[in-house]
Amino acid sequence: MYFYELLKKNRHQLNSTEEDVLQSLLNQADVIKSLTIREIATQNYTVPNTVTRLCQKLGFKGFSDFREALYLTTHEKENVITLTTLDEQIVRTKQLINQDVIDKIITQIHQAHRIVFFAVGLSRFPAEELHERLKILGINSHTFIDPHVMKHNAKLLTKNDLAIALSVSGTTETVLSATTIASVKGATTLSITGFSTNPIAALTDYQLYGMISPASIEGIDTADRFSLHYLTNLLFTEYLAAYYQQ
């Protein structure tokens, strides 16, 4: 925040005319990069030397230095807003969590003879992470890359097993098909999806929802799985708290 540090330190040195010009510059921060010193002077019924003098009083070498610092500061603010969007996803995801449901899922993880994950695309990453962490605890856990192998293993499930399906849309065909098979076979099922009424969630015994910001590039899904990672991490930490010492 180099720009605002200089303003705080030196702004008291400006006279009323310079203060008016400064306020005009701050109000045009979004387009400051395209403005010239003559345009600023004309807008404020003054001369370029006045603009230069106020920039120097504030601690900048001149108008170009001032303009660059204000431009960079404006873009720093935009980056903060982007990060805040992820924070909001987590806050809203937390609001959707029912602790009673979490407790029941943790019990199912502990009691399951076998746990399988159904996920494809980018949703495989939170699935893989939870899978690997469960394996460290000696839990019989499996993930699949090939959709045919996924469906085949779904057919092998019993009422003693747990199937966990991850899908942002809740409509992913391969995951939906495998979850349907698991449900028919009597396995306990859990869905972790984006917040929506969706067919995968409708199939499962337990549901967890994450807030997702949809994104795609040329029709390819690029939405972050931040909230899905949050939910799988929550399940693992809750499991550790409940059962690891035992």
Rank of each mutant, 00 (worst) to 15 (best):
V184I: 06
V21H: 09
Q28F: 00
L166D: 09
D146Y: 08
Y239H: 08
T74W: 15
A223I: 02
L166A: 08
T93L: 03
T85H: 12
R133M: 01
I81L: 13
A223W: 03
E88L: 07
T50S: 09
K61D: 13
N160F: 08
S167E: 03
A223P: 11
T52F: 06
G210M: 01
R38F: 14
I139H: 06
L156R: 10
T107K: 15
L203I: 10
N10M: 00
R124A: 11
Y239R: 08
I109H: 02
K94W: 02
Q95K: 12
S16V: 06
T52I: 10
Q89D: 05
S213T: 12
L14P: 02
H152C: 06
E128T: 04
Q246P: 00
Y243N: 00
Q23T: 08
M1P: 14
N15I: 02
H113W: 01
L86Q: 13
R67G: 03
E76L: 14
T197R: 04
T74K: 15
V168N: 06
S16A: 13
E76G: 08
Q89P: 00
V168S: 09
A127C: 03
K104P: 04
L58F: 08
T36D: 11
L58V: 03
N153L: 04
E88M: 01
E173N: 08
G62K: 07
T50F: 03
N153V: 02
A119F: 05
Y45G: 02
T42H: 09
Y206A: 00
H131D: 10
E5C: 01
L157D: 05
R114K: 14
N10A: 04
T193I: 08
G59N: 01
L35Y: 13
L83F: 11
L25W: 00
F144P: 02
T222E: 02
D146G: 04
Y45A: 06
F3P: 14
I115V: 14
Q56D: 06
Q111G: 11
K151D: 09
T171S: 15
S216Q: 12
R225K: 13
G138T: 07
D30R: 09
A223V: 01
P126S: 07
P48C: 05
K57H: 13
T107V: 14
L72M: 10
